[in-house]
Design a protein around this nucleic acid. Structure first.
Lengths: 334, 334
DNA sequence: CTTTGTCCATAAATGGTTTCATTTCCTTTT
DNA sequence: AAAAGGAAATGAAACCATTTATGGACAAAG
């Protein structure tokens, strides 16, 4: 069943069928109903590939995500996909992993498939060196690229970020002011937003004259291995490091800190404070429940889609948008 | 830059360029290198839409998932996407939500986009009535459909399931045999696999003469609302229901049960046993850690892809494959 | 009688793949 | 050595299903 069959059956040209299909103005009511009837009768649907060829688009957006099984990124992908589809776009998902080479090849694949835009979900797509971000600017030379939780100042790249720096700065400041002097920073990511968070903590502690290198601890193990995280904290304790609060770059690290505190028989939050990040489901799974920073993921995603749709419609759009986070106070802080 | 430009520059016909591109046999080594050189020189890439039109495929698989932000489904989507791509297929993701109407329209969308196959991730796509599953058989009349964690006996539909019935049966039996007589079943899903799990519990309890309707409790609230889950258990207790063990259809429900037990000052597992399902990250986040049933998600996904690839290659493939689960013993059971 | 505007058909363009026919070249036979 | 046969290499053209530009027919208005 092709547009030719329809045109023949309806006794009009294929151009007229196309016009009816696309709601073009110059079609008489009589012809319109006649064509629509024929289409309904024989259940015709336009061939998507031919349509793509003619229009040079199939209304598809490429979503790149290092690991969509990470709960936070999964939520982002979910929001983005739903909002894209309500805007008439479909999502081609690429889980790239964390290797640059794999990201580059996934990017090539999406460009080859002729998507209309690319969304990079998560801060791990931006690297230190400009040369390592070339794959992004190259793509942006062809189609708009949007970044969630990362920023890059390059033409045709649009960044949507939450103000992780300030969130962490305030969180650290608050914890110190509540009397926790030796606050350990526990992190597992050196990505764009990972750096911002660390910077926020550092600045706050420095201003209070409390910054110490041993209090900044990197966890290099698997992202889901709560055991190993707890173990690392225990080892630090055993080595004589004193800390009565943990600010974590992530709820799961925070959860490990809570586990650690319990095993040490500290009272939470009286003897030991913990602060997480992302305000994920884990925060309410924990006992006591985690105080965590919410970075308004859905708002970020909504805005990202708005920006991308604007760009695709040919409008001028802001290159970088910053949203502020919010500390959700629960049981692990005073 | 089209295939015509390349053919002109290389002094051959477009057919030859196409043959070189697709690794056809009948091309002399001399022309092959000449064409490849020209292609490299001018950085030509075939137009994906034209290619799709010619081949009637763009090597894309549609993935439908009610809620890809659910950790379990997110993991499944992640595995599936990665494995698809290593097999040369891309993933068009559709998060449908739980409404049948939305599933149907997402299905239409995927068919319109001419994907080569459809994967339904999660057991919530199968309904009681045959008429409600019509959207699946309709799709299967056109392209292969594969089901993860659900089964449907319809031509061109391939089901990959874990044996939830037996897993639950054994888990319930074991708990009873360890001396927990009043085991409450706590569930939140009435999907295909949800029913199988409940059936497993029911049969085991019935065989022991311990089945009681009040011990089967449905949670109707939000999937992430641990509070409400715990609250429901507390209410039951307050109403005089006696239970010293909970078998949950999901780790998060199990986690709520652990919270409940702690608030009641029960010792786990001495006074109170809990068993979860999915062996998710939550299981090791909990304190004590959850005993949980692992249904080998990655194996299921791997097999699903193998089946789908086989079908797409034109091979005869098994219509239904069943894998058995495994109880991962941790701290919440004796 | 010309102009304007509406409606519609024709034809070109989109960028590939594939089939079929033809040429080329090598081997075998006479 | 010439002819025939066959396989490999190549090109021309058909085909895929649409959009869009162009232009023609016809009716109403000036």
């Amino acid at each position: 069943m092709t547009i030719y069959d329809v045109s023949e059956k309806a006794g009009v040209s294929i151009a007229t069928v196309s016009r009816v299909l696309n709601g073009s103005k110059n079609v008489s009511e009589k012809t319109r109903t006649k064509v629509l009837d024929t289409i309904r009768q024989c259940g015709y649907t336009p061939n998507a590939f031919a349509r793509g060829l003619g229009l040079n688009t199939m209304n598809t957006i490429g979503i790149m995500c290092a690991d969509s099984s990470d709960p936070y990124l999964a939520k982002a992908v979910y929001y983005i996909e739903r909002k894209l589809r309500t805007n008439g776009y479909d999502s081609l998902l690429c889980c790239t992993g964390y290797e640059l080479a794999d990201k580059i090849s996934a990017m090539h694949l999406l460009l080859t498939k002729k998507v209309d835009g690319i969304i990079l979900v998560g801060s791990n797509f931006i690297y230190e060196k400009d040369s390592e971000n070339k794959y992004i600017s190259d793509a942006a030379a062809r189609i708009p690229v949007t970044l969630l939780n990362a920023a890059l100042d390059v033409p045709n790249v649009y960044s949507i970020v939450s103000d992780d720096y300030t969130s962490m700065y305030q969180a650290a400041l608050e914890m110190v002011q509540k009397g926790v002097k030796d606050v350990l920073y526990f992190y597992s990511s050196t990505s764009y937003s990972g750096k911002k968070k660390l910077e926020g903590y550092r600045t706050a502690m420095e201003e209070q004259g409390l910054l110490s290198p041993e209090l900044v601890q990197y966890f290099s193990g698997s992202h889901e291995d709560v055991h190993a995280m707890t173990e690392q904290l225990k080892t630090l304790k055993r080595q004589g490091l004193s800390f009565h609060g943990v600010i974590a770059s992530d709820d799961i690290l925070a959860l490990a800190a809570v586990k650690f505190a319990k095993e040490m028989n500290y009272r939470i939050p009286e003897d030991f404070s913990v602060l997480g990040y992302n305000n994920s489901m884990l925060a309410t799974c924990c006992d006591p429940e985690l105080t965590s920073i919410d970075n308004k993921l859905e708002t970020l995603c909504q805005h990202l889609i708005t920006i991308l749709m604007g760009v695709l419609a040919g409008n001028e759009m802001p290159k970088k948008t910053v949203f502020s986070g919010e500390i959700i106070k629960r049981g692990t802080t005073r």
